[in-house]
Every structure is written in structure tokens, then in C-alpha cells.
Amino acid sequence: MIPEFEKFKGFKAKSMPKEELLAPGHRACQGCGEVLALRMVMKALGKDVIVCNATGCMEIITSPYPHTAWNVPWIHVAFENAAAVASGVESARKVLKRKKKIPKKHVDILAVGGDGATGDIGLQWISGAMERGHDFLYVCLDNEAYMNTGVQRSGCTPYGAMTTTSPPGKKSFGQVTWKKNIPAIMVAHNIPYVATASPAYFLDLMNKVKKAALVKGPAYVHIFSPCPTGWGSAGERSIEFARLAVETKVFPLYEVIEGRYIMSRKIKKAKPVTEYLKGQRRFRHLDEAHIDYIQKRVDAEYEKLLRLSEMT
């Protein structure tokens, strides 16, 4: 087990950190599930953190000069390289501490990016940073498409979803590929901590982020982040969809601690995927056959996870 976890008792709904590390006045859309997830991430981490942000929604909505929503040190360099920037921050602090140029106090280093920055364009940079073993955490805020540029498909866009570059038509039903499994790729790097989380389960999310920060070495948290603008869903239902994704097994919550899969929430009686799909314009065009396929594949993927958790 991870010794750093022993002292951590977990967050409680009644005693949540009051401090907001992200200020209001940011430019996120109404009902943005991503900035809400980010707010929870920051609450879990507290103020002793340096944030390296990839280009994307969270970067632009929090930093239109001369306004910043950040109450913590924050740097944005480019789209694909947040993990490499974080590697640099971590290396600098290591040597500067050794040379007694900065206080010894631990400061978390957070790299954060969307699903495109993480799973597509930035995969190599993240892989490199994970493989080198830097002491940092990477948080992917997955809203399942390139929302910042106007809802284009990414490798993390789910099967069947309509985006501006996976439009359904006479010869297409939307996204033709199954969602890329980024957490599994991170697990393959043999890093000590990987987890998935959802803002609907905010204590679980915050505990996982905190554990990712506590663990020595690289850690990865993949957070489901509803996007009303990109999904064509009602803003007030963002948390509901985040919850439905878990309850339908579409987005299972689990941890992988030193290679061991642990289900955070076993779904005994799953809701049908239609519960999740309906109410989102991106899935509206799907016919029964496609929905049937999604249901079967979701069940199969979940079974795979369960087997992994039993095996490891």
C-alpha cells in the first residue's frame, strides 16, 4: 500500500474546504461541468500548488488578460505540453530545494488538460513525464471532444456521438470509434496511482485528487466533465449526466493503486444506457441498433474492469 495514504482521512461534505482557489468571474459557459470539476480539484489540493495548464477551455476561460481566475501560481505554455512544463517545474523545485534556494515545504504540481490535450495531441508528453517518474499529478478533464474550437471529435469522443467533425449523415452515424482508454494507457506506465472520477461524486473526486497529490511520483486522474454546449444538453443537468454516466456503467469509477484495480462504486443494478443518452443532442440521431451495440459494449467493458479488479 501507499504509506502516504495512511494519514489521509478523506474529505467530508460537512467540512469541505471553504477556500476558493478559482475565483468567480471566469468565462465558462452556463452549467459547465468542467470548470466545476476543476473547482473541486483545486479545493482538494489547496493553495500550495503550482498549476501547469494545457491550452483549452479551462485555460481560456480563466485567463483572458488582464483577468485571472487563479489564486494559485499558474502557467500556460501550449496545448500538448503541460506535462513537460510540469516536469520542468518539478525538476526546478527539486534542485532549488537541494541548494536551499526555496523552502523545503511540499508544493503539489498539477498539470491539467482536456481530453484532446491529454489523449490526442499531448499523449507523448504525458507518457514521457510519467515514464520519467516526476512527482506530479496530471488531471484530465474529459468533456469528450474539442469544445474550445467548436466541438470537434477527439479520441475520447464516445461511439456514436455527433460532433462537428463526426457528423451523422447518409453514410455515417457519428463517431465511429470507441472511446480511447486513456487511464489504461496510464496504468501501462506502471505509475503508482491512476483513478477515474466524476463531479457528481464530489467527495470521491476530491479524495482521489488528494491521493494523487499525496503519492510520491506521477499520478493520473481522469475526470468526466459534462459540457452542455458541446453535448447539446441542458445546463442544469450537467451533474445529473455525470451521475447517469456512472449509474449506467458508461463511465465507471475506479482506482488503480500500484497496478491493483479497485472499483470505487460497484454498479449492481445498472440503469440502461438510454437513460444517459437521451437528453443529449449529440446522441439524438442514434437508432436502436447503435444503442444496442453501445449497451452491449458498455456492459462488456465494465465486465473487463470487474475482472481486472478481481485479478489484481
Binding site: 475565483a23 468571474g25 480563466t62 485567463s63 488578460y65 485571472t68 481566475a69 487563479w70 489564486n71 494559485v72
Partner: peptide
């Protein structure tokens, strides 16, 4: 941007 959290100035 040297003033943390000054997006609060933006309503």
C-alpha cells in the same frame, strides 16, 4: 497577471 483571482472584477 500579477493580481490573483482578479476575474472577480468581471461580473
Amino acid at each position: 497577471i500579477l493580481e490573483p483571482g482578479n476575474s472577480a472584477n468581471f461580473r
